[in-house]
């Protein structure tokens, strides 16, 4: 039974507890308080929010980050399948999402479209300078997932083409197939002409090097297609990836993009170990398990972490 006085006391008590909680929150959130023990938000109970693109391979990597952190008793929250950079980069900057698997070359081009960096290391160091305040990248992985131009085996053999520079000597007209944005990208038809002196037509196919693109290549409606280098279909369909001696494409390694507030030593340490172990072959294999064996990102991530036995 509550009397009026008891009710009053209860209320006072609630307010007091609320105030203490609120003040505690202020203390741990104090931006000046960086010297205290190792903890940011994550170590003190706030879960790290991990995001991923709406791209199956990216989601697998995000799931690997999540399970690796969980294995080290760091709480995570998954916010996967967030469409494009326009949508998720602002969320990362604001801290709604804190950790995101990214690709060095493409991310650098997003922030600095005029960049001249080409090699893996150049791109990585240029990227560190190009990121806005509040964002940083951890170590990049050896695994790459970048644009690449591919032809069929028959085309490669009958025209003696194994590199983009060989294309200039091909006499039949060439058509390049890929997403429509490729037409205006620096490595698109204009880049091919400027770098290798190759003139190509362009046919937009909007499935990012998926089955429609492969079919168009087999039907010879296009002779050259843009497929991400970690796509298992390149090997499965027996395609030949043309070499890029002049560096038309930016190297694009898998890299964890993280909000500075969430980049505690514990988190960075775990994710850097994961990155160091993620090789190019591994990434193709992970993608293949998703594409060909229809495994879930959850299972694929678990199996890979067991295989590399980091934790």
């Amino acid at each position: 039974m509550f009397t009026a006085i008891k009710k009053g006391r209860l209320l006072t008590g609630l307010v007091a507890v609320g105030a203490v909680v609120a003040l505690a929150g202020c203390a741990s959130g104090d931006p000046l308080d960086t010297s205290s023990t190792s903890g940011g938000d994550a170590a003190e109970g706030g879960a790290i929010v991990i995001g991923s693109q709406a791209y199956y391979s990216n989601e697998i990597i995000a799931e690997i980050y999540a399970q690796a952190l969980e294995a080290n008793d760091i709480e995570v929250e998954r916010q996967f399948n967030i469409g494009q950079r326009d949508a998720y980069l602002p969320a990362l900057e604001s801290g709604e999402v804190q950790l995101f698997p990214e690709y060095t070359g493409n991310l650098l081009q997003y922030y600095d479209p005029e960049t001249t960096a080409k090699t893996s290391d150049d791109v990585y160091s240029a990227l560190a300078g190009a990121l806005p305040e509040g964002l940083e990248v951890l170590d990049q992985a050896p695994a790459t997932d970048q644009d690449s131009y591919n032809v069929t085996k028959e085309f490669s053999e009958s025209n003696g083409v194994t590199s983009l520079s060989d294309l200039a000597s091909v006499t039949t007209p060439l058509t390049l197939g890929g997403n429509s944005e490729l037409q205006t990208r620096p490595y698109g038809p204009e880049g091919l002409l400027a770098t290798y002196g190759v003139t190509v037509g362009f046919t937009p196919i909007e499935d990012s090097g998926g089955p429609l693109t492969l079919q168009a290549l087999k039907d010879n409606q296009v002779q050259l297609v843009n497929i991400y280098s970690a796509d298992p279909n390149i090997a499965a369909a027996g395609l030949v990836t043309l070499e890029d001696p002049e560096g038309l494409f930016l190297a694009s390694n898998v890299v964890p993009l993280i909000n500075t507030d969430a980049a505690t030593p514990e988190v960075s340490d775990v994710i850097n170990k994961v990155s160091a172990a993620l090789t190019a072959e591994d990434l193709v294999e992970l993608n293949s398990q998703s594409q060909n064996d229809q495994e879930s990102a959850d299972t694929i991530a678990k199996n890979w972490l067991e295989k590399v036995a980091l934790f």
Binding site: N179, S180, E181, P204, I205, E206, D207
Partner: peptide, 20 residues
């Protein structure tokens, strides 16, 4: 239609979204 290279007004929409 533009998804499979079929032209029509969707070509602008796909290209516009991809290139911001």
């Amino acid at each position: 239609a533009a998804y499979v290279s079929g032209g029509a007004l969707g070509a602008f929409i796909f290209a516009g979204v991809a290139t911001r």
